[in-house]
Amino acid sequence: MANEAKKAGVLIVTGDTKVVDRGKCDKLYINTSGIGLLNPKHRNISLGSGIRPGDKIIINGSIGDHGMAVMAARNELNIAADIRSDCACLNGLIADALDVSGKIRFMRDATRGGLGTVLSELVKGSSFGIRIDETELVVSESVRGMCELLGFDPIYVANEGKAVMVVGSEDAEKVLSVMYKHELGSQAAIIGEVTDEHKGKAWLQTVVGGKRIIEMLSGQQLPRIC
């Protein structure tokens, strides 16, 4: 805990312990709450209210690692996969990005439901569309292999160390290059852009040049039968 706190640059200021009867828990669980301050000039970032066509979509690296690491670790599948969760504290990376650009218009962690869910939530009911280029998405070979095997779509697999950002196009390269310098952003990429066509929809240009809609994940992905 001390190590992670040091890395994240946060102080652990208080704590409490509970002991329960033998047999009721018999393990150690650690639960944390964080408190921070929101700079008023960044208030719109959680809403995405400043987003406009032409803005770029940036993510700080590969997708699907956390969800597939959990699946592999459950060991029901007997898959010996070398997949590590991407679980990480992103505050340093985010602070670096905010330092170089005043045009970060939206930011969200792509956890449960993955990148696809973040994008379709963002675009729903809005006056713009989002186009994602599948060839720009970074998916590690082992995550891809496991997704292929099970019939999963990596854009709906959970991440625990990924931030999706919408950045004004003139600042996109600047944000990208500051991310590259950070260890959690070495595989960062511009994966798409905000468009004024297909309003209210996020859509994907597939690797083979086809098109499809990115919808919110409803329920959970299930392994295929055959």
Binding site: G151, D153, L204, T206, V207, V208, G209, G210, K211, R212, R224, C226
Partner: peptide, 16 residues
Amino acid sequence: CGGHTMSIQKFGIPYL
């Protein structure tokens, strides 16, 4: 085949 149904939609084949 359900696998075909999924692939066709996933890769956006009808669009091509």
